[in-house]
Structure formats: structure tokens, C-alpha cells
Design a protein around this nucleic acid. Structure first.
Lengths: 216, 216, 216, 216
DNA sequence: ACATAAACGAGACGGTACGTCCTGTCTTGAG
DNA sequence: CTCAAGACAGGACGTACCGTCTCGTTTATGT
């Protein structure tokens, strides 16, 4: 989510009370430079090998050359900040091109695979995500905003497939969705051997479509 | 791993420096009561709603009625302790009964499903696991001890299936394994709506075996 | 010093940078309302029980309904502001009426006593003064402007008394001055039991004049 | 107060709950070295020119080579710490020798004069005292413990003088006491020109005893 | 029985980070 | 050029934990 360049997370958090939405918009406006300096500092620190536990608001502010209050003015705590950092890494979902359900599924999984590969991701994403996951409230919000969108896109593809007779219709849609997403997730989380290999998306989609029993 | 009652992790961790491996083993022996008090305190705190980030060695020792040094004498840090707590919750894998590959797969996934259901698990396990995951070193060790065993059991089942012609042999075994384990993982981690429903194991196994394309 | 209503401190402090001294005196003039709002806010806060340490430029500006910059435009810091507040409380010294030295001394001490009694004083003055005293530079300036004037008035009275034979001339004037001022000061600073009682000025002056040895 | 070497203030603050008075006296005992390191650090910083406002608990702990918590374990805040520092500088009052009331009074004032002269005092004492004075609660306690003792010693001297006919009995004792103490205080607080000169105690006592009117 | 030695609870130690507040400066749009 | 508003970098506040280190006490064992 969020355009790749425009970090709208900061400042946007408080919802209706957001300064730019306010009537008068008085006082010195928030520095966009500080926004990016903070997010970049987090990414830099993680790339330099810091684990999530090593990160501190104190250290982030220091690394960003920013006062602590400037960080807290934008995010209520470390979790919310990290959540926004993750969001800033999210790409937009690929549009379902619709040539065939199989191709749409492959495109979706390829999107997931690539995201798990990007330099910043493999380090940042894995650790941030698992960290955020342990924080119910934060995780819920992330869930609402990011995972839900992905799930719904997946469901749309599958329902279209059912309507066109390409996908069996005697299973619940969300179970089917997990059948495709799950293997990629398992590989990303449980297997540390290698990066997610090219061709994995096709392999998963095709095998799940055709089934694991030997074909005659 | 580890018997349900006997937490052998403690004391055993430091390896060669372990007292019982020493020549004389003099002095007061470690209190087994302290071992269990500590682990139980962690579980209790989590059940009472504490997130992993809320846990502190200080608080754990306090809740266990134990001196801080007594905790540190057994585990080098919070991660190692939590890892042992997770391990204490692991049940032994079900033996592959071998009637059919399909049944063995269902048994394996049912084992996973149940583990994710137990009261202590759904609260403890999810959060501890995701926390531990963010700690590369700790995760690696957990991986070696627990996940690896599970993966190998899975692989054994699948290879037997291939040999018996029940599983297609033109795919890598570990990709196939993720095809079964992944959907359960996805449901457990990404879906907070409900507990894992009964029958989910069968549903996943059968659908993956038969494939998602409509059957004629 | 300063008329009771006209706080000329503000604006006058920065010296050459003062606007009214400038050639053209362009732009929006300073708000006299802001001047008084600030000083009044300080007094109000102290009367409401705030200790000096509790006061902050931030809080003062807030209480005065004024921007922080408006305060800093007038005073370089908290000390300077507090000093001006104290000054705004100073009454003019009573003119030496000259009927007798004894009466002039009583009038002087009565002036001190009353100043230490006024509602605003007993709260404000004591704390502000002792605070200011701990700031050498500020204290020095206060000393030059306020205490010195008082001391010189005192010395004038005493010298006149010596000339007229009412005061012994074999002591240094400033030691004699402290003999009268000191007791009132000691009572005000070291004794918290009661307000300074009526008649105290007379009692001190007469006893010091006559001496503490029993009279025959 | 407090013995000259043994800073019993720290730890002793909480009154009856003091650890050394407790039944079991468990846990690691407090480090006496830390006690002195902290107090010495305050004195050192002040001697190096720091004003009271410049002192911070953070800086004091740093200068003492001590954790902040170690300071807060002993004193609840800066005021209480400074109060103890002042107390650590108090000498015991000189015993009233009783040869004559005049000599006892001189000894008492000489004690005050000297205390205001000691290197550490003139810097530390003046500023700490005036600072502490602005904190009603702290001042009250200091008053109870230190000033009260001094006042009572003074009263004892004066009452003995009245009984022996050396002091006029038609004035309240506490007014008389201020007649002697006040001038020394005024000189110390209001006059920054010079240190308190030798012979000042005698000069004050004799002049107050004899009175300021010319003697025949 | 008695010393030895390690573990025990308690809690102090020097540190680091927390999230809040204040300082003195700067930057808006409005007057 | 001032005003109210409020963001800025910096830093102190008092609290909580970190992992280590004493304390005095308890509990085994090896003599």
C-alpha cells in the first residue's frame, strides 16, 4: 500500500484529527524530511544487521538525526512505526489480467515470492512481520489493511475460476485460497536454506490445480 | 520434544559446562521445583494476556517466586527460555501408521491442527513462535530440533507414497510437503477469525491430493 | 521599581535591538496586552501553588494564551522574566520624613514587613527571590537595581542620625544597617510559623537602638 | 547534622522502613561507596561552577559513575539529595561554654560566619540553601532538623542570660534571637562584596548588646 | 559430625531505553 | 514586524529491565 514514494502513513494515523484535514491547519507543518529520515533509518539499521529487538526508538531517532518527540509525534510507539515501515515496502497487488485463472494465480504468488526476495524484504520483512504478529492490536490493523486486500483479490480470482468452470466449486473459497498461499508462506517462513527460487509460483499453482495423485 | 513433565532443557543447555557432567558434582543440586515454577510462570503470564514483549526476566522471576539468578543459571536469556517453553509444549509426532498415505497425511495435519488449538497453544504458541522466529540464532536451533523432525516425518510419508504409487513422483518432495503443511500454517497464522475447525485436516489433504480443477 | 502598572521591563531588555529605539519602527507593534498577560500568568500560577521549579516557559505561555516566541521576544529566559515579575511587585521606598531617625527606621522596616505580607508577596516573593538568588548573574542585576537602592536609603537615614547624634558613630554604617534589616529578614526567611506581626518593626528598631542589656 | 564522616542520610530517609532496621535485612546491601560518590559528585560539580539549575540527576549520576537508579534508590528527587548534601556540610554546633552570655553568643555567630566561609560552603551552601528554600516541603524538613536545633541553642543561651540578668527580659526570646542571627544572615545573603570578615561576630554581638544609641 | 561448595531468595549494581515534558529556535498563515 | 500555533533537535525526567554481583541462608555431599 501507499505509493512507493509518498509515505502517507505518518500524520495520517490519527484519522479525522489529522492536521491536513483540519480547518485551520495552523502552526508549523510537519517536516516531510523527518518522515522519510525516520523510515529510512529503520531500514538502514535493519539492513546493517540489527534484529527487531535491537531497535529502539532512542536509537532510531538518533540514527535519523531527529528528536525523539518527532518520532512519537507521528507514531504512538515502536510497533506502529514498524507497521508503517512494512507498509511502505508493500507493492501494489498486480491486477488480475484475466487471461486464465491459472495465470492470475501464478501472478499473485509470483508477487508474494518477489516481495519475499527483495533485499530489504528478506531482512526487514520477515523479522518485522513476525514481530508485529506478536502484537495483537498492531497485527489486527495490518491484517485489516494489507492481508485482507490480498485475500480478497485471491478470492475474486478463485470465484471467477469457479464461474468459468476452471476451479472446483465444492470447496470453500478461503480454504482453496490457503491452498495456494500457504505453501509459499511455509517455504518463506520455515525454510531458511535458500531464497525462494524462480519458478516456484508456477510449480505450486500447477501442482495444486492438478493434484498430487499421479496422473494417468 | 521432552516429556510433558520433565523439562530437561534447563541445566542441559550449557553443554560441557553442565554440572552433572562434572567430576564431583558437589554442592547443593539445582531445584527441580524452580525449573517448573519458572516455565509455569511463563505460561501463566501469557495465558493472563501478556504479550511476549510484556514478558521480562524480572517479571518472570517474580511471578515464579524465584531469584533472577536462578533463571539465568538455567537459561542464558529470554529467548532461550521461551524456546524451551515452546519445546515443553510440543507433543511427540504421531507414528505413521501406514494404512494409507492419505491417512498418514491426515494424522500429521491433525496433529498440527490440534497443537494450534490447545488452550495454551493458541495463546502461547502463536506469539512465542513468531517472537522466536525473529531471533535468527534461536530460531535456527528450534528449527533444527523441532521443525526438522516434523519435516522429515513428512518426507518419509511422501516418499513411501511415491514408492507405492499414491503420490506423483515428478515433484520435489519438499515442495509437496509444503503443499500440505502450508495451508494449515496459513490458516493458523493469517486467519484470526476462528479456531481451526474440525475436519480441516481431511479437507486439506483430500483437496491437495485430488487437485483443485473440477473432476469429471 | 517601575510603576505598579507599567511593566517597562519587557521590550526594554534587549537594549539596542529594541523596536521603539529603531529608526522607522515598522511592522505590527508589540501587544501591551501580551506583556501583562504573561506577567499576570506567572503570578496566577504561583498563587495557585506552583513552586518556581514547576514553572516552565511552555506553561507560562500556555497560561497566558500567548505563543512561546512572544515570551522569548520580550525576555531572554525564565530568570529574566521572573526578575521582572519581582520588580513589578516592588513598591517605591517611603520617603524619609525626617521627624526623627527612629521614625524613619521604623517606616523603612515597616515597608519591608508589609512587602513580605502582601498576598502575592508571601507566596511569590519568597520563592522567586530565593530562586533568583541562585542565579548569580540575575541576582547581581536585581541587587544593583533594588537592594542597592534600599541599602542607600538606609545608609542615608543612619548617617543623618549620626550627624544629629542619635546614632553612635563608632560603627561602620553598613554593619549598623544590617542590624536593623537583618532581624526582619531572618524572621521572614527562617520562620514560617506566622506572618510578620504588626508592631514588629517598632520592636526591632527600639530594641536595637536601646540594646539588649537590661536598662537600669 | 550527621556525624562528620558517616552520611547516614541515604537509606535512612524512609524512616522506620529503613533496611538496616528491618528484621531480615535481605539482599545485597547498599554500597557505601555509592553514597559518598554521589554526594561528592554534587559538591564537585558545584565547585566546578555549576549552578543549581545546571545540576541534573542524570549528570550527577554520570559524574558519580553510578546508575541513575542508584541515586533514586536513596533519594526521591533532586531536592532531597541536595538537602542531604547541605546536611553533610553542617558542623555540629559549638557547645555553650557558659563563661558569659556574651561569649556564647559570639561563639554561635562565629560558627555561622565560618560555615559561610568554608570553600565548599560559600559556593555550595548559598546556592543550595536558597534553592532548597524555594521547595516548601524540603525546606520544612531542613528547618525541623537544622534550623530548629540552632534556634533552640540560641534560645537556651538567651534564657540563661535573662536568668543571670545579662539580657533584658522584657522582649520575646525569638525576637531577640533574630537580632543576633539576622545581621549575619543579611550580610551573607545580601552582600556579595566580600567574604564575612573576621571580627564580625564580636562586632554584631557587642553592638546589639549595647545598643545603637550613643553611649554617654 | 563437619566442613565444603553450590544453589537459593533477595535485591543492589552500572547501564540502556522507555515515553513525557521542557528548552530555545524556526516556520507557517494571518493581521 | 508581530501574533498564535505548533514542529524542530536536544536533553532531563523518573521508571522498568537488563545481566551481573553480593548478601545471608539452605541443602546436599564427601569426609
Amino acid at each position: 500500500m501507499t505509493g512507493p514514494t509518498a509515505p502517507d502513513g505518518p500524520g495520517g494515523r490519527p484519522g479525522p484529527a489529522t492536521p491536513e484535514a483540519a480547518d485551520g491547519r495552523r502552526g508549523r507543518p510537519r517536516s516531510a524530511a523527518a518522515d522519510t529520515a525516520i523510515v529510512e533509518a529503520v531500514l538502514r539499521l535493519i539492513e546493517e544487521g540489527a534484529s527487531i529487538g535491537d531497535l529502539s526508538m532512542e536509537g532510531i531517532a538518533r540514527a535519523a538525526g531527529v528528536g525523539k518527540a518527532t518520532v512519537y509525534r507521528r507514531w504512538p510507539g515502536k510497533n506502529a512505526l514498524l507497521l508503517d515501515v512494512v507498509r511502505s515496502l508493500e507493492d501494489d497487488l498486480p491486477p488480475a489480467r484475466g487471461d486464465s485463472v491459472r495465470d492470475d494465480l501464478v501472478a499473485m504468488l509470483e508477487h508474494l515470492r518477489r516481495r519475499g526476495l527483495a533485499k530489504r524484504h528478506s531482512a526487514v520483512f520477515r523479522s518485522v512481520l513476525t514481530h508485529v504478529q506478536a502484537q495483537p492490536a498492531v497485527w489486527r490493523e495490518y491484517h485489516e489493511n494489507v492481508i485482507r486486500a490480498r485475500r480478497e483479490a485471491m478470492h475474486a480470482i478463485l470465484r471467477r475460476g469457479m464461474a468459468r468452470g476452471e476451479i472446483r466449486a465444492d470447496r470453500e473459497v478461503d480454504v482453496l485460497a490457503d491452498l495456494f498461499v500457504g505453501p509459499m508462506l511455509a517455504r518463506a517462513l520455515l525454510d531458511e536454506r535458500t531464497a525462494l527460487p524462480e519458478g516456484l509460483a508456477e510449480q505450486i499453482v500447477d501442482t495444486v490445480l492438478e493434484g498430487v495423485r499421479p496422473r494417468p
